[in-house]
Design a binder for these strands. Structure first.
Lengths: 149, 149
DNA sequence: CAAATATCAGCTCCACTGAAATAA
DNA sequence: CTTATTTCAGTGGAGCTGATATTT
């Protein structure tokens, strides 16, 4: 007994993408509570942090928050031993956030999770379709958010 | 100067999907602040609410929260005139949440936004690829989250 | 009486902002 | 003086638990 506009809502690209993202977030949250207890905002920092290291300002930009909020989040995950703040050799005022081995292990775990997830999806819809969806989705994301990554 | 594992992280399906969702949420948030001020959690209720009406329990299940939390959010958007609670004719204990005209207008606006967004994406990558991505993404979402909608 | 629906009250954590301090 | 970062204080969002009323 669904309405017509409900069908329209259900079929929207954004809704299905959000569903996928929600599933992934649920999975990752379940995984990480076993390992280290991380809040969603803290996880967002780990997602944006590159293994080559980034400054607070860069992270704040990518997270879309203030530098204060980013700084606080970094401090929290530093207390948990996931990252360290090292002085930036190029700028004495700045510091560079780097993964610790423990933090890096979480990244590796996440990458492994994504690999396994994509294996399952490939088994369901085929490697070709998965590759196609990935490519097109990346193009759409680049189109809508040229400055993101 | 990106690391190899960073490339892997960047290319993950989940990451690109999350990027897309983030863009959409940003757009919708900007739209809605012009109209009515809605918090993300309140918006989530409007997203899950069907035009044919739902009970608190149903909304709580879909939102993945407690009935108390769902009830509170419904009360908040009821105070803003977006929904009403009507007695369920089939069960005197229950009530059915329905959109008001004002709430329904927000849904219509969101649907229009998605239509326009997909028009733009289609212009960028073509109607066929968009349709393909939508279909495959829906299949992936159904696979990972059989009970969702 | 037992089960289901919903609400109220009190509490906690999370995330963010603005202002101000420090250092280069 | 400007820039990068950090700390402090305060705010509001969002969720939970426990208790209660009501209906089936």
């Amino acid at each position: 007994m669904t309405d017509l506009i409900d069908e329209q809502r259900r079929n929207a690209l954004g809704r299905q993408a959000a569903r996928l993202v929600a599933c992934i977030e649920k999975d990752l949250a379940a995984q990480q509570t076993v390992d280290v207890d991380i809040t969603p905002a803290q996880k967002a920092v780990l997602i944006q942090l590159e293994t080559t290291g980034n400054r607070i300002t860069t992270l704040a930009q990518r997270l879309g928050t203030s530098k204060q909020a980013a700084s606080k989040l970094v401090q929290e995950i530093e207390n948990k031993g996931l990252v360290v703040r090292l002085p930036d050799p190029e700028d004495g005022r700045a510091s560079v956030i780097q993964f610790t081995d423990k933090g890096r292990a979480i990244v590796d775990t996440t990458v492994s999770y994504f690999e396994e997830l994509e294996r399952q999806i490939a088994a369901e819809i085929g490697h070709e379709d998965l590759a196609l969806v990935k490519a097109k989705l990346k193009r759409i994301a680049d189109f809508l958010d040229p400055h993101g990554f």
